Computed example of a mutant assay.
Amino acid sequence: MRTTRLFASAVLTGLALLTATGTAVADTPSPSPGTDSGGGPTEAGTTFRTATAIQQHQRATATASTGDYLYWVFPADAGQRATVKAKITLPETAARHGASTWQIDVYDGLRRRQACMYGNQTRAAASDAASVELSCVLRTVRAWSEPWADDPLPGSYYVRLTVVDLPDADLGLPAHAEIQVDSVDKGGAHDVDGTLAEPLVPGASSVERATDGTGSGKQSTTRISLGSEPDDGWSSGWWTDRWLWTVGGGVLGALAAVFGYSLTRGRGRPSRVPPGV
């Protein structure tokens, strides 16, 4: 009976630890759109090479002309499922001549277009609408994949925002865009046996810019990074919550073996016969 009680207590303790770990991860609140207090970038790039780098949970804004292509780039690591959200404040109703359709596209570090699992990737705005909101939930990033596969891998991801349909007379009207990328960690359920040698982050390019506006011809070379990296760095690739479940399963298996052995030994032990009987 003592062995049974010890076994039951150990099982309950192990399950409680595993449940508490899972609950702590699931209950971790993620920042809501627009709550970044540090202030994100206030401009966007117009090509892949000039994309503005942003971090996850950071709100970026940009003012541009309707019809422009706007680009941002953000990092996504293994096990993360990213959600891209965009809000476009449309021009004044009196200046518009009809409805418009807006769209966001996401590309990985190799500039492969990534499909959205769900969300409003393309939406139409009525001629009297004040704004339009878009969203795209990406597939979970894998730590490794076959060369021929199109799976999302750790590295930089580009967001492109533009209008895909509107009256020609509305081209060039001012519009204001807001974008934010959030993600959730899906944990060991999406782990694979392998990691990339390096994340898919493009290198850097040299750009010459004039140092003044006097036309003197003086130029300075600036190194511009074409990728981005998480604030806490890329994951090492070896730690995962699978270790918790593996260790917990091993402990429970060992305790079950001890309990089974104690039951078998107790049943096979011969009963004592009182002396003189």
Rank of each mutant, 00 (worst) to 15 (best):
T21M: 09
I88G: 14
D168M: 09
T89Q: 10
T140G: 03
L15K: 06
T211S: 13
G217L: 13
S30P: 08
G233W: 10
Y118C: 01
D191A: 15
D128G: 14
T89I: 12
W234V: 12
L255P: 05
A16W: 11
V192F: 05
H97N: 13
Q58E: 15
T162L: 15
H190Y: 14
D212I: 12
C116N: 01
H176V: 08
P29H: 11
G45Y: 15
P275E: 10
G249K: 06
E92P: 02
W72Y: 12
A149Q: 08
S135F: 07
G188T: 07
L252I: 01
A99E: 07
L166P: 02
M117Q: 10
G253W: 13
D170T: 12
V181S: 06
W238P: 06
G276L: 14
G266D: 05
W239N: 06
V84T: 05
D105N: 15
A210V: 10
A44N: 13
P274F: 03
P41G: 15
G38T: 10
T211C: 09
Q114A: 05
V201K: 01
F259C: 08
R209V: 15
L196P: 03
G233L: 08
V247T: 09
T221K: 02
Q114W: 05
S32N: 05
H176N: 11
P31Q: 05
V164W: 00
K87R: 13
Y261P: 03
L263D: 02
G187F: 01
G260E: 04
R272D: 08
A175Q: 09
P152W: 01
L70T: 13
A129E: 15
A60K: 08
S220N: 10
V84W: 05
S135V: 00
S145Y: 01
G109K: 01
L134D: 01
G155M: 01
T162G: 11
E178V: 10
D128F: 14
L196E: 08
A175H: 12
S262E: 14
A256K: 11
